[in-house]
Structure formats: structure tokens, C-alpha cells
Computed example of a mutant assay.
Amino acid sequence: MPLDRLADVVRHSCGGRGELVAAAGERIVLPGEVFEVLRLVVLAMAAGQAVTIAPHHQTLTTQEAADLLGVSRPTVVRLLERGEIPFEQPGRHRRILLREVLAYQDRHRHQRRASLDRMVEISEEADLYEVTADPRRTR
């Protein structure tokens, strides 16, 4: 079954159940949580998004954390040194739990959203949207 067709099928099966069918015909009923994860993976892949599945207790190198966050390795090292992301250093190399990187990413996303919301609020209070909405008006 092509990916687009599979995406159409799972898109309309929220809260449903699924089964895996082995080559020999053996059927395995999937728990709802597993089915939901697989459904989201199929939808993401159909949308052309990259998908990575890893346990939250997995450890990452600073370069892997940087790649996940979309920043440079030195930026990750600075975040670690400032205490923004907890890490362990059993020897020479720092090790970071995936769940800690994801928690930082979530906190950072919320902070960024709050900052943008505040900027919009300030702009609205100053009627800056009205000023820029009319291209004939200049400051």
C-alpha cells in the first residue's frame, strides 16, 4: 500500500485499534498507545517530515544534541555550562539525556512564544498595526 493511501486510512482512524499482520499471517493486536504512535509516524512521513523514534533515557553527545536543537555544538556546550540543560560527564565527554534536551526545547519554545505574544501586545497597545496596515502611511 502506498504511503499516501496508508496516511488516508490512518488519518480517519483516530482512537481506533490496529493490528500487525506477520508474513505468516499471525495477527498481533496493538495497544492503543502503540497504534497512535504509528499513526502519527505515518502522517508525518506522508507530510515529508523526518521521523526519529528513541527512548527518552537515551544519552546524546553534544553534537547529537546540537543537531536535534538545530544549533552549533559550542552553543550546546554553553547551555550545559550555564545549567540550562543537565548533563553527566563520566570521563572527558559530556552525556545528555534525550529527555533533558527535549525538555529544554519545550521550555525554549514556550519562552519564545511568550516573548512573541508580548511583542504583539506591545505593538497593539501602541497602534503599530494600524500604522503599518496602510502602505501609504509612513512614519
Rank of each mutant, 00 (worst) to 15 (best):
M1V: 03
P2L: 09
P2F: 05
L3W: 03
D4L: 11
R5Q: 10
D8Q: 07
V9G: 00
V9S: 00
V9D: 00
V10Q: 00
V10K: 00
R11F: 13
H12I: 07
S13R: 04
C14V: 15
G15N: 11
G16V: 04
E19T: 03
E19R: 03
A22C: 11
A24M: 06
G25A: 05
E26K: 10
I28G: 10
L38V: 09
R39M: 01
R39T: 03
R39F: 01
R39K: 04
V41S: 09
V42C: 14
M45K: 15
A47V: 09
Q49L: 11
A54P: 01
Q58P: 00
Q58K: 11
Q58S: 07
T59R: 06
T59Y: 03
L60K: 12
Q63F: 01
A66W: 03
A66K: 05
D67G: 03
D67A: 15
G70V: 12
R73C: 12
R73S: 13
P74E: 05
P74Y: 11
P74I: 10
T75I: 02
V76G: 01
L79S: 01
L79D: 00
G83S: 08
I85M: 09
P86V: 08
Q89R: 11
Q89A: 02
Q89C: 01
P90S: 09
R92I: 06
I96C: 03
V101G: 02
Y104A: 08
Y104M: 02
Y104F: 15
Q105W: 06
R107S: 01
H108G: 00
H110T: 12
R113Q: 15
A114M: 14
S115K: 13
D117A: 12
R118T: 13
V120G: 04
I122N: 09
E124A: 14
D127C: 06
D127Q: 12
Y129N: 15
T132Q: 07
A133Y: 02
A133E: 12
A133V: 05
R137M: 03
